[in-house]
Design a protein around this nucleic acid. Structure first.
Lengths: 206, 206
DNA sequence: CGTACTTTTGAATCGCATCAAATCTGGTGG
DNA sequence: CCACCAGATTTGATGCGATTCAAAAGTACG
């Protein structure tokens, strides 16, 4: 784990009041290393900038149960008011994280109502996104999930596959083979096209 | 739609400051009726007490896309700061809802820091719950999902099936038949027992 | 040019959805 | 008390779609 001067992603810079900017730190985690372990007292809030962080905890049979998987955004927001971690945070890949001290974060949330409202907005957006993902994952064919993704996360029937179909497959909770086949079949049926780096849904004919 | 004097569930009563209590109203929606439609300007925040409310919007092919399904808790928190609804809210069953005026809610969030922090806590709990559900739904066998449910939402390997296995099946995103079979098979293998109204996971032997 | 990764297609298998039907349950009214 | 009904529970049979294992082809990069 390596700490350096804070280089905040714009999403964070706009969210946090200036007072907190200087208190942030950037942390670089190698694949397989831990950010924190269960039982420890939370001192910081963590924002994943790149890579992948999982929160997990051992189940009754000793197997590991995944509670959250973050590739971009806050991990374990609930640490804001919990006295100790109930899970381990582990980097699944090389990961870059920004840390924000919790004590000062809480103080600012209490003292700066505008900031508190921005924070609430951020949580609301996150809730909305997760609700969409839950609905998507409760669809039972790859095609339904893909269409739901394009309809809800895309812009005008267009969804960017910046990081490749393989990573979209993970997001949809299906094997990459299944997704490749689904896309191929939709393309053959003329219902979907690949334009540039985007998946483009064919509009209603006419 | 019928409005009556506010009878707040305790979760709401403890969350909201007294000032807001008297501004709440209880709404009863018949199955199939709408709470609001897309385009309308949000005036209230809604808390589902019982029944089931869905947020949906038409997709490109005219089919309806479900954005959220709420059986208990807030629906469309994001209406707190959005200028208009982007979806319809429809009661899938006879549903009881408590409404809270948004203008006054925002005012109180700005003026009462303690309330704002309580609100943030509530959002954090909701996020945690949804993240768990996403992870659960991305497991691909009924058994894995059921075990994840018991491990994460149960207490000490014990999960109440108050509303019946059928409703648990919906929550797990599987058919009730599949869940019945899964439970039966786990019971036969001695890995799960039904005690009283609970599902009890057999502990590690020894 | 070799290495690593994504993309793509194939074949076999498995688990779940679905349709069907039987049993069990609690509750209601005669 | 019994007849009856609606809903939950349970078991069976069938087909489809996804997972999985395998392998080939394309692509970026040093």
């Amino acid at each position: 784990m390596k700490r350096t001067a804070p280089i905040l992603p714009s999403a964070l810079a706009e969210l946090l009041p200036a007072t907190l900017h200087v208190l942030c730190a950037t942390i670089t985690l190698g694949k397989g290393s831990y950010l924190f372990k269960a039982g420890r007292k939370p001192a910081c809030m963590y924002f994943v900038v790149s890579g992948e962080l999982t929160l997990e905890r051992p189940g009754a049979q000793g197997e590991s149960i995944i509670l959250q998987r973050t590739r971009q955004g806050f991990a374990a927001e609930a640490s804001l008011q919990s006295a100790s971690y109930h899970c381990d945070a582990k980097a699944v890949a090389d990961t870059v994280i920004v840390s924000i001290p919790i004590r000062e974060l809480r103080t600012m949330l209490e003292q700066d109502p505008a900031f508190a409202l921005r924070w609430i907005s951020m949580l609301n957006r996150e809730l909305k996104r997760l609700r969409l993902q839950c609905e998507r994952l409760s669809l039972n064919t790859v095609q339904d999930r893909l269409c739901h993704l394009i309809e809800t996360e895309g812009r005008g029937g267009r969804y960017p596959m910046g990081s490749g179909l393989k990573s979209i497959a993970r997001e949809l909770g299906v094997s990459h083979e299944a997704l490749y086949r689904c896309v191929a079949s939709l393309e053959k049926g003329g219902k979907l096209h690949r334009v540039g780096g985007d998946l483009v849904q064919a509009g209603v004919s006419g």
